[in-house]
């Protein structure tokens, strides 16, 4: 595989994390415009851990994910009362605040005679873990997909379990869920925190893949794209957001002749898709029917 293909595949993998994070919140019925904040904050935190404090990468990813998860839970607790558009705009406001603060923050330490650390609007250079350890692009891509697979498996397990039903109950009708004895506050903060952690893993990987992060990358466009991926792929299963990412980053990247007209084609296609499938390609009903087909087949075999 040439580097270009590996880079595209890695990007698909890393963007998938933020799409999955937005999807997890969509399950609970909330639309977040702000998942990019956790992606970005974690990229900075993880970068700081490995580049400034010389920690190993697993510690960097852990630090990034924890920072993202904790901040997400705090934001989740503050916005507990909000739903619908109010929640969406509050998350947007928080994410932009985080981005604008990162534009101001300058903390640098000296590592091997060089100044390393966030440098305001100039971004955070020198997250060189990959070069220092001589890790190839392919190896890093495998790391990305390994963690992505773990995340997807986790989400699929959640979906099959009672927790998945709990989240869908919350998303479908939170008052009814509460009347059935569900502590809606606790599960909402849990979901928001988990979504923060997932975005955070993606962000930590991103920082080490590109070796350089700047606040501008974590603007609201990234967040809204993440949201769109879930909706394009479908809200019925965790594979939905992955399909969405693959369609946008993968499929359209492959069609070279529409370069320059990509958004015109993509935008039009998605708008038409949403007319016929307002909850995405793999929505709950289609997933339900697919499952019925599969279980019938299994029964026939048995």
């Amino acid at each position: 595989m040439d580097d270009y293909v590996i880079t595209v595949l890695s990007n698909i993998g890393m963007i998938s994390f933020i799409a999955l994070s937005a999807y997890l919140l969509l399950l609970t019925g909330e639309i977040s415009f702000g998942q990019q904040a956790y992606f970005g904050l974690s990229a900075y935190a993880a970068g700081a851990a490995t580049a400034m404090f010389q920690l190993p990468i697993w510690a960097g990813i852990l630090v990034g994910a924890c920072v993202a998860g904790i901040i997400a839970m705090v934001v989740g607790a503050l916005t507990l009362q909000l739903s619908g558009l109010y929640f969406s705009v509050a998350t947007l406001a928080f994410a932009e605040m985080a981005r604008l603060i990162l534009l101001i923050v300058e903390i640098q330490v000296e590592v091997d005679g060089e100044m390393v650390g966030p440098e305001g609007a100039n971004g955070f250079h020198g997250i060189r873990w990959m070069f220092e350890r001589d890790i190839s692009l392919t190896e890093f891509m495998l790391l990305i997909y390994g963690l992505l697979a773990l995340t997807v498996i986790f989400l699929l397990l959640v979906e099959r379990s009672r927790l998945g039903s709990v989240l869908r109950m919350l998303g479908s009708d939170d008052l009814l869920a509460e009347m059935q004895g569900l502590n809606t506050v606790r599960y909402r903060i849990l979901a928001v925190g988990a979504a923060g952690v997932i975005a955070g893993v993606g962000g930590a990987l991103y920082a080490h893949f590109t070796t350089y992060v700047e606040p501008q990358f974590f603007n609201v466009m990234l967040g809204v794209h993440a949201l769109a991926y879930g909706l394009i792929g479908g809200l019925g299963t965790a594979f939905g957001p992955l399909i969405g990412v693959a369609i946008d980053v993968g499929f359209l990247e492959a069609i070279r002749f529409i370069q320059g007209y990509r958004m015109i084609v993509f935008g039009g296609l998605v708008a038409i898709l949403l007319i016929f499938m307002p909850r995405g390609i793999l929505d709950e009903e289609r997933v339900h029917r697919l499952k019925a087909v599969f279980s019938r087949r299994n029964h026939a075999r048995a």
């Binding site: 935008g267 708008a271 307002p278 909850r279």
Partner: peptide
């Protein structure tokens, strides 16, 4: 495209649709 064609209850679909059309208009 984004509002009339999509049924009224699909709030999220309309919003995402208007977002992708934004990208389209920008390009």
């Amino acid at each position: 495209l984004c509002f009339h064609a999509i049924r009224r209850s699909a709030v999220l679909a309309s919003m995402v649709s208007s977002f992708v059309i934004w990208m389209q208009l920008e390009e």
